[in-house]
Nucleic acid binder design. Structure first.
Lengths: 342, 342
DNA sequence: CTGTTAGCGCCTTCAC
DNA sequence: GTGAAGGCGCTAACAG
């Protein structure tokens, strides 16, 4: 690697090409009032020196960086990854050419604190705006805009995009009830997230609507992880009156559930029907393929980016909060059960 | 969201607490020559105003940001995700508290160009150093250090960490040969990556060493994706003399292979043995669980971060390039075959 | 069309 | 122990 002592500044370029710094700046920003010849010459020097203008200096002066920030709770979380994907797609289409992803790896502080820390660290210094995924809080004190994806509350204090979780959960329950299931277990999601609570709410509402009493024993804790899903499924399957179906609040939990069933000598869907939520890529590939609810996560990232860009450009938001429709994807992890089953 | 007109600057803090900006700066940087009382007062004001010093301004002045950059080819790539995880772990342990991840989403340019663009954009402006994953080039002109993970060449021009791919591939082949396999297919990886080529080299070397002629028809193209692995496996399985085992250059390709086998009515491992490379999390969970080579990807990210920090602090590198040992993980995707098999 | 001037927010001498 | 002044690299007026 060529380790130059120092990277060239706009001054160096100016000196080298025999013009003033402001002319170089004009060339850099494609202002139209530069002589074609000068433009060419400066451009050549820039290329030759391998010059790139300092993001820090540019940002400080112009208060515009063309960088948007993305804060995710965990880089391994597949929800976050899907969102990233959508954000990337949007970024590529628009003129913004870089993203600062930062994850929540800061010691000794609550997630809300940490989120605020990053928001204020990034915004107005290297970022024109921020997208924050599954935030614990939506209250930020910042000059630049923030858009939340899957916020923690029904009425977030910042612009947001989230899925129609309640409707999605209802469609799952309707499907399971239609297959004849009456004893349906539920594995909850991260309880600090509104989306997770909405899914639980859908579970409850559908049961009530069908005239089925809610058995608290059938509602297990969960935190959206596969491991936790496994343990909770074990509890559910150990019940005296085993459920015939389990609705897991997300696909990871559903994967854990299927594994738990298998380890308990039960096969899916013969002995147990399982439904997830999210439609992560693995859902289609696993055996059996997983019936789940698609909430178009990457599109949520895409829309969030569009919203953020609008905000940055000072345009008003047409739809806020944006509600992404959900869709039940029927695959092979459920089966119809006969009348004789209680 | 509280949308303040403008985020507070060090000036605002100074005015509010009745001291000069330089005193505030001292407090900010924990200089020791500040009266305890003053320190407290200023700190209170900072907390109260929700002040965060501008990363941009700080970086410009002090040329030290405590931010490291991470450039990955694709946010969905599980190799990259594992590296991120390791980097995050290292960051958390050390004093650096933020990472700028940027992915390759820039239009109309080669990957090498794009990588150079990001390196120069980040370095010396908001980043103290950069880790770049599976880069197409290792030649960068930058003042700040760059460390490559899984570089594209055996003798990269920048510090690097990579796995002992050749040894790993040899151990796979030794295992398969030991199980009695003689007709072994290979699905290649991204041919622009040295790691992929090393694995192919291991495949060839082991065969030669065992006195088995190399059949070019058994070596299929690949690009580390599941889809491509599926198609290549189809070709291999359609061969007149079908291989009894397939060694895929990474786990994604192996997953595609298993799917192709299943779709062709073959079961794994009964009709076909499959081995992957990487040991991604899914490998343990799938059915059948996948025999593969662990190359401790997240640890590679961790080590790369350690190396980068050392470089940033001007310390010499003890081991460069760093070679991460690999380990064969035997699971259930292979079986022994009898003597009668050709 | 191009150069000059004045800061953006912060840190670092150097005085006091 | 604390304040004042200068400048990091850049852009945005304003002159010429």
């Amino acid at each position: 690697m060529r380790q130059d002592k120092k990277s060239p500044t706009i001054q160096d370029v100016a000196r080298e090409s025999g013009v003033s710094v402001s002319t170089v700046s004009r060339v850099l920003n494609d202002k139209d009032d530069v002589a074609a010849e000068t433009y060419e010459r400066v451009h050549d020097v820039i290329r030759k020196m391998g010059y790139t203008s300092s993001l820090a200096a540019r940002s400080m002066r112009s208060h515009r960086t063309n960088v948007i920030g993305l804060i995710v709770p965990d880089v391994e979380d597949s929800f976050s990854i899907q969102v990233m994907k959508g954000v990337n797609r949007a970024i590529t289409e628009i003129d913004f050419d870089l993203i600062a992803y930062t994850s929540g790896s800061i010691k000794r502080s609550s997630s809300a604190e940490r989120e605020r820390h990053y928001v204020s660290l990034l915004n107005t210094s290297i970022t024109d705006g921020i997208i924050i995924v599954t935030p614990s809080t939506t209250t930020f004190s910042t000059a630049a805009p923030v858009v939340a994806v899957d916020a923690n509350t029904e009425s977030p204090e910042c612009p947001s995009v989230s899925a129609t979780n309640l409707a999605g959960a209802l469609s799952v329950m309707q499907y399971l009830l239609g297959l004849g299931h009456r004893r349906i277990g539920f594995i909850r999601g991260r309880s600090d997230l509104e989306s997770a609570n909405q899914r639980l709410e859908g579970y409850r509402a559908a049961l009530l609507r069908a005239g089925i009493a809610i058995d608290p024993a059938l509602i297990a804790q969960g935190d959206f992880t596969c491991e936790r899903g496994y343990r909770s499924a074990q509890e559910l399957l150990a019940l005296p009156l085993r459920p015939t179906a389990i609705f897991a609040a997300n696909d990871q939990s559903a994967i854990g559930t299927i594994r738990a069933a298998r380890d308990a000598g039960l096969s899916v869907p013969e002995d147990l029907s399982v439904v997830g939520f999210d439609n992560i890529p693995e859902a289609a590939y696993m055996t059996p393929s997983l019936t789940t609810v698609d909430q178009f996560i990457d599109h949520m990232g895409y829309v969030a980016t569009e919203m953020l860009i609008q905000l940055i450009q000072g345009e008003p938001l047409v739809r806020d909060p944006y509600k992404m429709p959900t869709q039940l994807i029927v695959r092979r992890s459920c089966r119809e059960i006969g009348d004789g089953v209680r």
